[in-house]
């Protein structure tokens, strides 16, 4: 894939741009800032991953793009989400509904709970065609069966008439993908699409997303905690921690030379397949001590400060800002890991 080296690429190649997004939630303990000023850009045809642990705000960011935050408890308090030349946050409910499932689609982690259990899977695919393409019943059925075949379901004519509980988890995720891609969206948001699936099925689904992506010329945002998935299919990575973006960059750069201590720790915390077999000894996994900070009572300085191996005094008093350190590469840390003058580990 071609990548432009110009930072801040023009809107022509930009699939979606999120600017300084803030999302708050009401909880019994007070207002919880789940997303605190997230910005990133996704280029046409690119696969972007938002990586982070639970509570990092990665899923909330994705839901904000679709504006599926529950209004009763959550609120997008500020920011811009520019898609196709317009700010999605300014659209009315009617326009949003037209856009959802049409120009932007989403698939979720648990395909069982995102499918309607009382509706035949074929009808659930067909409904999308009927709503967005305004085709008749027969045409919708024909298109649905074709779509089910495209996502790799065997005997799609038979599957068309089955209910979600009659098919396996992997097949259900395929049906979700069929629904999401029915209207050839420009952008697909996949929230942990393979987390609930077995590893052999995960490979199949990742391949499917990749194939359909190039076929449909769409852009993809994958929300994941699995660095293996990131390394496998992702072009550009946004690492989130405690509601903020802490590092961005192309996947290769992120893995080869992480600049934020959290990114580095995350990469080193997972056991490497084949490492123990090769070296015949068990290297101790690098722990990230402690737990994620309470978003209701964030520390004054850097949110990662208390768990960071490299923290200095300044880290506990002043919060670092996002520094651009290269082409589409930025980091939120007082002490960029690649800088030579910082070998005083704690």
């Amino acid at each position: 894939m071609m990548k432009s080296n110009i930072p801040n690429s023009t809107d022509l190649t930009c699939a979606i741009k999120v600017v300084d997004l803030h999302v708050d939630f009401a909880t019994a303990g007070g207002v919880l800032p789940a997303v605190r000023g997230v910005s990133f850009e996704l280029e046409q045809g690119e696969t972007l991953a938002i990586v982070g642990e639970s509570g990092s705000g990665k899923s909330v960011t994705a839901l904000s793009i679709m504006q599926l935050i529950a209004k009763r408890t959550g609120r997008i308090s500020s920011g811009e989400i520019v898609f196709d030349g317009q700010d999605l946050l300014q659209l009315d409910e009617h326009k949003l509904r037209e856009m959802r499932g049409n120009a932007i689609s989403m698939i979720f982690q648990e395909p069982m709970s995102s499918l309607n259990p009382l509706m035949k899977v074929g009808h659930q695919v067909g409904e999308v065609f009927r709503r967005h393409l305004k085709v008749d019943r027969a045409e919708a059925k024909r298109l649905s069966i074709e779509m089910l075949r495209k996502v790799g379901l065997s005997a799609p004519e038979r599957r068309y008439n089955e209910f979600p509980h009659q098919i396996s988890g992997g097949m259900r995720q395929r049906v979700m993908i069929a629904i999401a891609l029915a209207c050839r969206p420009q952008l697909l948001i996949a929230d942990e699409p393979t987390t609930a699936l077995d590893v052999t099925i995960q490979g199949q689904i990742l391949d499917l997303i990749q194939d359909l992506k190039s076929e449909n010329e769409m852009s993809v945002i994958i929300i994941t905690h699995d660095l293996g998935v990131v390394a496998e299919i992702v072009d550009y990575v946004v690492v989130m921690y405690a509601g903020q973006v802490v590092e961005t960059g192309y996947a290769r750069e992120i893995f080869e030379q992480p600049r934020h201590p959290y990114t580095k720790a995350l990469i080193n915390a997972v056991p490497k397949l084949g490492l123990r077999t090769r070296t015949k000894q068990r290297t101790r996994l690098e722990e990230i001590v402690g737990t994620v900070p309470n978003l209701l009572a964030l520390p004054a300085g850097c949110a990662f400060c208390e768990r960071c191996d490299y923290a200095q005094e300044i880290c506990s008093t002043s919060a670092p800002s996002m520094e651009v350190v290269g082409a589409r590469r930025s980091v939120r840390c007082h002490f960029d890991l690649t800088k030579k003058d910082r070998h005083h580990e704690r």
């Binding site: 396996s168 490979g203 199949q204 391949d207 293996g228 390394a231 496998e232 290769r252 893995f255 397949l273």
Partner: peptide
């Protein structure tokens, strides 16, 4: 073998090597 080769390895350098996925489900 199939199980081992379907694991995504967290290293983008290995991306050139084709991941082998087995067909079907258990």
């Amino acid at each position: 073998r199939a199980l081992l080769s379907s694991i995504p390895v967290p290293d983008p350098k290995g991306r050139g090597e084709e991941r082998q996925t087995i067909k079907g489900e258990m």
